Amino acid sequence: MTAKPPTPADLALSDAVGRGDADAARAALRAGADRERRDGQGRTPLLLAALADRVAVAEVLVGAGADVNAQDARDDSAWLVTGVTGSVAMMRTLLPGGPDVTLTNRFGGVSVIPASERGHVAYVRAVLAETDIDVDHVNRLGWTALLEAVVLGDGGRAHQDVVAALLAAGADPALPDGDGVTARAHAERRGFEAVADLLRRAESQGGEGPRAGGGGR
């Protein structure tokens, strides 16, 4: 079935998203733009706004009822990509739209997992505090957010703070990867002594980690 060609209002909305022009986006919606119209990769205007961190435009779209959970051909959604960009402002803008925090990306992960991998400290703290996202969700690779922060992180301050935030939120340090290797064992193998120390302390406290930001330098 051939896709219906875009209307002038649809094109105006697409342009507004690209420029980050909230007033123009609002005008395009009033003119009848389809807020759920998808591009060639299945991306909605809201998803494109989230990818570009166009917070003001996203606020207009969410207010107009745009679907925060609509996924594209790569299984990305506006909500899921906030874990990649690490935008706390966008995350909070999407919350009134009722994001499904159990929705998974193409790797089977929830948004806190890529955020942990990338060392987005502020995002990890915010999403754990402001949603009921599963801190111990396991993706298709067999990794939790804690494991990704260690396996794919660099052991530096940002990843130390991410590990501390995850532990403070109740992440289980004893959960191993698919090969039975724990986050602490990975940290020790990679020479991330400050991270390994955080994990050792969490294990000794029965899984109750230190407060975020409490790691060593």
Rank of each mutant, 00 (worst) to 15 (best):
M1P: 09
P6F: 01
P6C: 03
L11T: 10
L11Q: 14
A12T: 09
D15R: 12
A16P: 06
D21W: 12
A22H: 01
D23E: 13
D23T: 15
D23M: 08
L29M: 08
G32K: 00
D34Y: 08
D34A: 09
R35C: 06
E36V: 13
R38T: 15
R38F: 11
G40W: 13
R43P: 05
P45A: 10
P45H: 06
L48G: 11
A50T: 13
V55E: 03
V57D: 05
V62H: 05
G65F: 11
N69C: 04
N69H: 01
A73F: 14
A73S: 13
D75E: 14
D76Q: 15
A78M: 12
W79R: 12
T82R: 13
G83D: 03
T85A: 11
V88E: 02
M90V: 07
L94V: 09
L95D: 11
L95H: 10
G98M: 06
P99M: 04
V101D: 03
N105P: 04
F107E: 15
G108P: 10
V110A: 12
V112N: 09
P114K: 12
A115I: 08
E117V: 07
R118P: 02
V121R: 03
V124Q: 00
V127W: 06
T131I: 08
R140W: 10
R140V: 03
L141I: 06
L141K: 07
T144C: 00
L147G: 00
E148A: 06
A149W: 01
V151W: 13
H159A: 07
Q160K: 04
V162N: 06
V163G: 00
V163A: 04
A165M: 00
A168G: 13
A168I: 00
A169R: 03
G170H: 03
L175F: 00
P176C: 13
D179K: 04
G180C: 08
V181S: 07
V181N: 05
T182Y: 07
T182K: 09
A185D: 08
R189N: 12
G191H: 08
F192R: 04
F192K: 04
E193P: 01
L198C: 08
R200Q: 13
R200A: 15
R201C: 05
E203C: 02
S204H: 08
P210E: 13
A212W: 10
A212V: 04
